[in-house]
Design a protein around this nucleic acid. Structure first.
Lengths: 224, 224
DNA sequence: TTCATGCTTCGATGGTAGCCGAAGCATTGC
DNA sequence: GCAATGCTTCGGCTACCATCGAAGCATGAA
């Protein structure tokens, strides 16, 4: 059973270390998990058998990476459940600061900046939030049209909601999902404010110098 | 850690039994998991502490249900990972026959009928499938327009793919997701061929007498 | 060849957690 | 009141599995 694999603390630490999409060697993972190489080796073969990680041999190193985005998605989902009940492990969230700051969650912005964005939008009455449900206000529509050239008809979709609160893995608070979240992320990319990291499989989102400024001007909380 | 909760076979059996959205008593869950009531009680309090299930007292019974759809979603995700590597537990999939036959997976049709539908569409060259990727053929577009009044422009979405293969929990094979999957399910509902079960939280999809016939005429495999 | 590094396999140990029997509460019914 | 049902708590047993030391294979360097 897959869940049992993720359930062990040592293995969970390894998987967490791999969540940024990069591949790590067996010994690096052992260090991450705080166990000896022998133990790590045993865990890694189990994870491999369970299809959660894939090895790649290179010289005398063995690199491991998460099998694919589906695995990362399920892990993020588990982390989300863990976060909201406060039953997280002590070793929480991603260590990689870039990943904490901004990353892709499915198709929208997550991490510190993602949470900050929703916070600010809520404060300025661009959206109204009731628990999981988020609604775009008339003020919000004007704001989007003026500053990001996003019109309401771009957001319509028969099934997917325009706005949705998505629990943030690293911040344990909500960020913005739904078609609006996706469209905004898309716009940031088009405007060259931000781009997904070039490393294959990486979920990190890098903001450009000017992109960061523009973003802060719209959604900053004055803390940066 | 949440994953450890799901990792235990007995608890996994209980959660599986709850996947149809109905609430079950502690003793029923004990029986499902094949353990004594004492043991079940211990497991249930852990699951409750982890926020995976919620109790509801009623007379001298205690009903448990999954906390919400997020939990069900993560569980289905885990089941999906487990299925594709063949590392499933022996006790596989939902026991409830209605749930095996037809249910909602996010917003599209899953279960026996969902798999059957994609099978037939593939056979008749309405779609072409390469692993995860599915493409609608010209023939498929004509078919959809004629029989279900679905036109290609109804399926366009900036981010979400029109077709996508989604691994079916109970059948361990693919069914159709994406905007097409969602739109088709929506159409079935509008045509009164099928409807989500009235039980709150249930993911079962009930087909009407005529709906079943119509569906079989379009997508039947002659086995029913 | 010889040595060093990275990783795996083997064997033994120990801690943890699932499990059940028995007893203890609560609720319902008589 | 008393008994029956449904569930929980307690205590002890057992089995599993994570863990590490030591030894064994590979690969690469000298």
């Amino acid at each position: 059973m897959v869940a049992a694999l993720v359930g062990d603390p040592a293995r969970a630490n390894m998987l967490t270390a791999l969540m940024n999409g990069r591949a790590l060697t067996a010994s690096e993972l052992a260090q991450e998990a705080g166990i000896t190489p022998q133990t790590a080796s045993s865990h890694l073969s189990k994870l491999e058998a369970g299809g959660l990680v894939e090895p790649e041999k290179q010289g005398r190193h063995r690199y491991y990476r998460l099998t694919d985005d589906d695995v990362a998605g399920v892990l993020e989902g588990l982390a989300g459940l863990a976060a909201r009940t406060g039953h997280m492990r002590v070793r929480t969230g991603p260590k990689d600061p870039a990943l904490r700051r901004a990353r892709i969650c499915y198709d929208h912005l997550a991490g510190d900046l993602g949470v900050q964005m929703l916070d600010t939008m809520r404060e300025r009455n661009l959206v109204k939030q009731k628990k999981q449900d988020i609604e775009l206000t008339a003020e919000g529509e004007r704001f989007l049209a003026r500053h990001l050239q996003i019109s309401p008809d771009m957001l319509a979709h028969p099934r997917r909601p325009v706005c949705k609160a998505c629990l943030d893995w690293s911040e344990r608070r909500h960020h913005l999902a739904g078609t609006l979240g996706a469209t905004m992320m898309q716009r940031f990319t088009e405007l060259k404010w931000a781009a997904r990291d070039a490393t294959p499989g990486s979920r990190v989102v890098n903001f450009t110098r000017t992109g960061e400024k523009q973003f802060a001007a719209l959604f900053g909380n004055g803390k940066d």
